[in-house]
Amino acid sequence: MGLKIAIPEGRLLPLCTKALEAIGIEVPKKSGRKLSLQKNGISFLFSKSFDVPLYVEHGIDLGIAGGDVVLERGCDLFVPLELDFGRCRLSLITHEHRTITMDDMEGYRIGTKYPKLTQAYFAQRGISIKVLPFSGAIELGLVLGICDAIVDIVDSGRTIQENGLTESEVLMNVGAMLMVNRIAQKKHFDRINEIVIQLNEEKEKTKRGGVTDGFS
């Protein structure tokens, strides 16, 4: 039985493809509406980033998704490697013209796609907030005044700038993560270890400008 790999659609897709192809795993080009494709005996499943951890927890052997998504989902799976791409920040965003401290945020309505991480962040600081769970274009909720602040991923920061918003606090820095299904780790023990080692070597190569020094 060949490996099954879940890959996120969107901005991570070309980066995942590049990382896998660097270790000799050719990713088929997604065309049309087909959700899964096969190449060289490996099945590839293309899904929304938020669903990748869920697929991996429930039987897909490997997957790649952003650390924000992996932590928010909190699925029961292995995370053997943090990858060196897809780096961004999970940040608290407010209106540009308002200067607010964390202490002022008691009772705030905070819009986010990350309700668990947001609740945990404020609860750790003893601040009680109300989370408004959005699924997309969260900035609009803040612009329209539906929420007092938002927690979202910031990459270049262009969207928040163009909408008169500002990044007030970084909750965490995140990057892409490799996930492995707990049973797949046993079932494909040698192959999965080989993939983890190769991806780590590629990461080290990039980090040190061409010199390999990974665990093996």
């Binding site: 995370v79 780790q185 023990f189 270890n193 665990f215």
Partner: peptide, 28 residues
């Protein structure tokens, strides 16, 4: 718990110890 050896790689312990832990984690 996460099967993430990268975390052990970051620890200030000897390379010999890291190898020993890596081998143990991959004993099957």
């Amino acid at each position: 718990r996460q099967r993430n050896f990268g975390m052990i790689e970051e620890l200030p312990i000897s390379a010999k110890k890291k190898q020993e832990l890596w081998r143990l984690l991959n004993t099957r």
